[in-house]
């Protein structure tokens, strides 16, 4: 058969920005709720944050259809895990699963940029940051998506994580209190919204701590 649809792309960039910050006993995961294509806004109220397990939350930007497929895949795998082990998957285990799931599609990737936040087995905050094909790293804080170029250097400046090359290895969690971290996230997004057209409308913040999961929202610029 002859080749068809030469000028067609299976991908789209629907924009969006994700941030996660880990503290000693909490984790803050945030993302805006705008979904765009090109210069158009498709909707102002689309959640990019997905709860994968009791202590594990993923925020994803990039191509919405791929993100949705990825979330479904992880939810299905987590359901099987629950049936086999009768417990929730831990955040570090889910982090490895996410990496493997992304790499499984290495040659037709999920066009999704994720940060995974949660509490590890000791109850300490953890953040994992990914690229689209599954390389990942545990860090103290991270940003992904269209506004990451604006937010990441600001977080570096404010939080100054210890070099991962230091020996003995130093803890990467941030020294901030929970409310300071939430305020920092709000500032990040308020700033990113000014210059990034793919970030805006509303900010969704999820806070994980020993009490459980708590959600809050903040309005962002709508232009």
């Amino acid at each position: 058969m002859t080749k068809q649809n030469a000028n067609w792309s299976p991908y789209d960039n629907n924009g969006g920005t994700c941030v996660a910050i880990a503290g000693a006993d909490y984790c803050v995961i945030a993302a805006d709720t705008r979904m765009s294509t090109g210069y158009s806004i498709l909707t102002r109220d689309y959640s990019k944050i997905c709860k994968l397990a009791d202590k594990c939350v993923m925020a994803s930007s990039g191509f919405q259809a791929d993100v949705k497929a990825l979330q479904k895949q992880l939810a299905a795998r987590h359901l099987i895990y629950q049936h086999q082990h009768n417990k929730q998957v831990s955040c570090p285990a889910m982090a490895q699963l996410l990496s493997n799931t992304l790499y499984y599609k290495r040659f037709f990737p999920y066009y999704s940029f994720n940060v995974l936040g949660g509490l590890d087995n000791e109850g300490k905050g953890c953040v994992y940051t990914y690229d689209a094909v599954g390389s990942y790293e545990r860090v103290g804080y991270s940003s992904q998506g269209s506004g990451s170029t604006l937010i990441m250097p600001f977080l570096d400046n404010q939080l100054k994580s210890p070099s991962p090359l230091l020996l003995p290895a130093q803890d990467a969690v941030t020294p901030l209190s929970e409310s300071e971290a939430v305020d920092l996230v709000k500032t990040c997004f308020a700033s990113a919204t000014e210059r990034d057209i793919y970030t805006g409308d509303k900010l969704e913040i999820v806070v994980l701590n020993k009490e459980g999961l708590h959600r809050e929202y903040m309005e962002l610029r709508k232009d």
Partner: peptide, 25 residues
Amino acid sequence: GMVSMIGVNFEDNHVATGFGNHLAR
């Protein structure tokens, strides 16, 4: 709700296709 040809989907209080996204929404 809406679906595009590459599977992008969402719900909203009002939706439009094609030029409608630029002119009607």
